[in-house]
Amino acid sequence: MEQEKALDIREITKAFLDVNRWSISDMAFLTNIPRSTLSEWLSDKRELSTRHMRCVRDFLGGNYVKDASAVCSDLLIKRGTDNED
């Protein structure tokens, strides 16, 4: 029986930042969590407090994500740029 792999919140947050082209500094500004704290947490060097974890979950559940049409436009632009080389 194949065991399911669960995504952890660090992985989700990293992907979220990447897809939206946001930096850790952007996230720190929006969540009011110190940048150094987020950086250490994302690199698995520390755990977040319950309060900070709640802020991360609120951030991930917020209206910060680009909508699908914006993401598709970005992908098409990237493909067009890659084909020009």
Rank of each mutant, 00 (worst) to 15 (best):
L76E: 08
D82Y: 05
E47F: 06
T50G: 03
T31H: 02
R54L: 12
L42I: 09
I77F: 08
T31D: 04
C72Q: 04
R51Q: 01
S23I: 10
R35S: 09
A15C: 04
N63C: 03
E47W: 00
S69K: 07
A28N: 07
M1H: 11
N20Q: 11
R10W: 04
Q3C: 07
L76N: 07
M27Y: 06
S43V: 08
V19P: 01
S39N: 13
K66C: 03
C72T: 11
I33C: 05
T37C: 02
T31M: 06
S49V: 02
K78W: 04
T13G: 09
D85E: 08
G80H: 08
R51L: 02
R54H: 02
F16N: 05
T13P: 12
D67V: 07
L38H: 10
L42M: 14
D44Y: 15
L42S: 05
K66D: 05
I24T: 13
D58P: 00
D67F: 06
E2L: 15
L48E: 03
T31L: 05
E40A: 11
A6T: 14
L76W: 02
T31P: 07
L76F: 11
R35I: 07
A70D: 04
M53F: 07
D67K: 03
A15K: 14
D58N: 08
A28C: 09
F59D: 00
E4N: 13
L48M: 06
E2Y: 11
F59N: 03
L75H: 00
S43D: 00
N32D: 10
F29Q: 12
R21I: 08
I33Q: 03
V56L: 08
G62T: 05
G62I: 11
A68D: 03
L60R: 00
E84S: 15
C72H: 00
F16H: 13
E4V: 15
W41T: 07
R35N: 13
R46G: 00
F16L: 14
R51P: 00
M53D: 00
D44R: 14
G62M: 06
Y64W: 13
K78M: 11
A6F: 10
T37R: 06
D58H: 00
D44P: 00
D85L: 15
R54T: 04
D44Q: 12
Y64Q: 07
V71A: 06
R10N: 09
D18S: 13
E47D: 13
E2N: 11
P34H: 10
I9N: 01
L60C: 09
E47N: 13
F29S: 14
L30D: 03
S69G: 01
D74R: 05
V19F: 06
L38S: 02
G62W: 04
G61L: 08
I24W: 01
E4W: 02
K5E: 14
I12L: 14
D74E: 10
L38G: 11
A28V: 09
M53E: 05
I33T: 04
